[in-house]
Simulated assay, not measured.
Amino acid sequence: MAAFHDQFLKLAEQIRRRLPHVHGEESTKQALILPFIGALGYDIYDPTEIRPEYVADFAKKRPGGPAEKVDYAIHLGGTPVIFVECKSADVALHNFSGQLARYFNATPACPVAVLTNGVKYMFFTDLEEKNILGEKPFFEFDVLSFTEADVEVLETFSRERFNPGGVREQAEEIIYTSKISGYMGSILRNPPESFTRFVLGELSVFAGKRLTPRVIEKFTPTIKRAIQATLLDMATRSIKDQAEPRAEAPVPAAPPKLEVPTVAPPQPVIKIDEKL
């Protein structure tokens, strides 16, 4: 995940530099959107994988004009799995696109549709009704403003990890996690009376005692400070764990050397001639 995150940090800097010079939809595609698709691991030069100006079999011609096209259809195993509709970088995105919906609704094999202006990416699927594109995105990614959690979700759409069959479950998980996180965040920032009453009721020191409005009012600031201290401690521990180098496996000690006694060579025997 770290390598994937670093890759998008670099992409963000690249897009930030290019953005002032991008004008029009075609420039947006070439300078911003194709690099994004490439960063997800798809081969933007392989026409069997990335099909620009994709015309589906069901596409009908506009009155007096050519057939409707989707800007990019990302294929895996010969099947379209992500439709991408592009807008110019200077166009504010709306939550819904009729053209994108028509393509999605008529292509049951494609589970994801993306609407983008090269900076913001809106991911849609059929959460409310099967094979009918939802009007609200289940996930949004801003290339110039994202968190590690955003990148973690985005990575599930990469070529290496994308599972077309699990998109509905994933979309539900993303939505529920977002809603629960928002709810928990509001509680932790400003604990309501019900939460304070619950916490005090769980503490043995208040067992059997009546939790009057006065007691609740008295201990609400205390609980708020305790929450802040706990969150700070958790963040500090997390940073410390990331900063500390992993303990290396101990190097096995070398076997002790055997001290071999040094044996002195035998001294030569000098014979003395007694006749001398």
Rank of each mutant, 00 (worst) to 15 (best):
residue 1 M to A: 13
residue 1 M to P: 13
residue 3 A to K: 15
residue 4 F to I: 06
residue 8 F to R: 11
residue 8 F to K: 12
residue 9 L to C: 12
residue 11 L to T: 05
residue 15 I to D: 10
residue 17 R to T: 03
residue 18 R to N: 13
residue 19 L to G: 02
residue 20 P to T: 03
residue 21 H to A: 09
residue 24 G to D: 11
residue 29 K to W: 01
residue 29 K to A: 02
residue 30 Q to G: 02
residue 33 I to Q: 10
residue 34 L to R: 04
residue 34 L to F: 00
residue 35 P to I: 09
residue 36 F to I: 07
residue 37 I to D: 02
residue 38 G to W: 04
residue 42 Y to C: 02
residue 44 I to A: 05
residue 50 I to K: 10
residue 51 R to E: 13
residue 56 A to Q: 06
residue 58 F to N: 03
residue 58 F to A: 04
residue 60 K to Q: 15
residue 61 K to L: 01
residue 66 P to C: 04
residue 67 A to R: 15
residue 72 Y to N: 12
residue 76 L to R: 14
residue 78 G to M: 00
residue 78 G to K: 00
residue 78 G to C: 01
residue 79 T to E: 11
residue 80 P to R: 04
residue 85 E to K: 12
residue 87 K to I: 03
residue 90 D to C: 05
residue 96 F to Y: 15
residue 96 F to K: 13
residue 99 Q to N: 15
residue 102 R to M: 11
residue 104 F to R: 13
residue 105 N to F: 09
residue 110 C to P: 12
residue 111 P to T: 13
residue 111 P to C: 13
residue 112 V to N: 06
residue 118 G to P: 12
residue 120 K to F: 10
residue 121 Y to N: 05
residue 127 L to H: 03
residue 129 E to I: 10
residue 130 K to L: 13
residue 134 G to C: 09
residue 145 S to K: 15
residue 145 S to Y: 08
residue 146 F to A: 07
residue 148 E to Y: 12
residue 148 E to K: 13
residue 156 T to D: 05
residue 159 R to D: 02
residue 160 E to F: 02
residue 162 F to W: 06
residue 166 G to W: 01
residue 167 V to T: 07
residue 175 I to L: 09
residue 176 Y to A: 00
residue 178 S to Q: 04
residue 181 S to N: 03
residue 181 S to D: 02
residue 186 S to V: 00
residue 188 L to S: 00
residue 192 P to F: 00
residue 193 E to V: 08
residue 193 E to K: 15
residue 198 F to M: 09
residue 205 V to D: 14
residue 211 L to V: 11
residue 212 T to C: 06
residue 213 P to Q: 11
residue 218 K to C: 09
residue 220 T to R: 15
residue 221 P to L: 02
residue 225 R to A: 10
residue 226 A to T: 10
residue 226 A to P: 03
residue 231 L to R: 09
residue 232 L to N: 08
residue 232 L to K: 10
residue 233 D to W: 03
residue 234 M to E: 11
residue 235 A to R: 12
residue 239 I to Q: 14
residue 247 A to M: 06
residue 249 A to N: 08
residue 250 P to Y: 02
residue 252 P to E: 03
residue 253 A to W: 00
residue 253 A to E: 11
residue 255 P to D: 07
residue 256 P to A: 14
residue 257 K to T: 15
residue 258 L to Y: 07
residue 264 A to F: 07
residue 266 P to I: 01
residue 267 Q to M: 00
residue 268 P to G: 01
residue 269 V to D: 00
residue 273 D to I: 00
